[in-house]
Amino acid sequence: MSSDSHHSGISGLGGEVLGHTDVKVSHCYQCGKCSAGCPLSEEMDYPPSVIMRMLQTGNPDLEDKVLRSLSIWVCLTCEMCFSRCPMSIDIPKMMDFLREKSLNEKKSDPKAKEIIAFHKSFLDSIKYTGRLYEIGLFVDYKARTLKILDDLALAPKMMKRGKLNIIPELIKDRSGVASIFRKANKKNKN
């Protein structure tokens, strides 16, 4: 598909999507099967097929709206769209790219604040310990979002059932994991 891109002359965000994910937005013929099967479609500002259409236009204003959309963050990467797409378009892969780009360009939708905060807390947790530390994750997430009261009842219940570790599981080669993060993050900012 990469040889296609040489001749296709797709510019703009659609071209970037092609370059990074091999997804060619022109393959979409707007049947809507992705949106019909998407479990989060009704919570999105633009359902997946509409995102595809916006990218097809090559209109910079619409491309900007895609990066600022809530859709890309409520997408769960459940892969239903890809699995049923008659054109085998890997929308989840494209969504991953759009999210990363939206973050890098600081365009993420404020309404996605909690979702992003959760991802960040999650990654921070493993960055320092190598494994997920669930209590740490919750505390960090609450600090980021100020959603102090949410799920407050959950923790004691989990604790009672032995589902929460008080002390994080620390791996030995924490510097190795930290180095993976460093390298990946450096690459990202370039």
């Binding site: 049947c31 809507g32 099967k33 949106s35 019909a36 099967g37 479609s41 009704e42 359902p47 097929s49």
Partner: peptide, 13 residues
């Protein structure tokens, strides 16, 4: 039968 109406911003039908 779950589909969408693509002429209505892919509204679920």
């Amino acid at each position: 039968v779950s589909g969408v109406d693509t002429l209505l911003n892919a509204m679920p039908v």
